[in-house]
Amino acid sequence: MTQQGVVCRGDQVLWSEVQMADSFLDRLQGLLGKAGLADQQGLLLTACGSVHTAGMRFPIDIVFLDADLKVLACHSRVRPWRLKSCRGARVTLEVAAGGVERHGVVSGQCFTWRVASLRP
């Protein structure tokens, strides 16, 4: 993964440990091989309007976003071996199951992405 950052809604940080997958290989790898995600972790897949959970070992929440990071659709607690897509989506956010509900994420909200600050 190339960058780590935070996903915000306005001034509120929703997920503080999000990896950006902006290359074909990073998107292909996705969350495969991981045992799970902590509440603050996520994966932001660029150039991505559909995802699968084949081979995964845990459920996730999936948020489809347009090019401006406006929420188009949310899918909660998607189990392994499923396929989800969204017309018009350009970016997909995968987070721990329950994150969408916990943060009250719904269609129409706008997110921002910030690269994490480097610590000295």
Rank of each mutant, 00 (worst) to 15 (best):
M1D: 11
K84H: 14
L28N: 07
K70V: 15
Q4K: 08
C74H: 06
L14C: 01
A73R: 04
V6N: 13
A54W: 15
S85L: 14
L69Q: 03
M20S: 01
H75N: 10
G104P: 04
L14N: 03
A89H: 04
V106W: 10
R57V: 10
G108R: 08
D68Y: 10
E101L: 07
Q3S: 13
G88C: 05
G99W: 08
P59V: 11
F111D: 00
P120M: 10
R87L: 13
G55A: 00
D11W: 13
V115W: 10
F24R: 06
V18E: 00
V13F: 12
D11R: 11
D22E: 11
A116S: 12
Q40C: 12
A47V: 09
T46Q: 06
V95Y: 03
G36D: 08
T46V: 11
S16Q: 04
V115P: 08
T53E: 06
V115S: 15
S107N: 07
M56D: 01
G42T: 01
K70W: 01
R90H: 13
R102V: 11
D26Q: 13
A38V: 04
T2K: 11
G88V: 14
I60A: 02
S50Q: 10
S85D: 06
G36M: 03
K70F: 00
V7H: 04
R9S: 15
P59L: 09
E17W: 09
M56W: 04
Q109A: 13
Q3Y: 12
G5V: 12
P80G: 09
R79I: 13
D11A: 15
D61N: 05
V7W: 00
I60D: 07
Q19R: 15
R77Y: 13
R87D: 12
G36K: 10
H52R: 07
Q29H: 06
A97T: 13
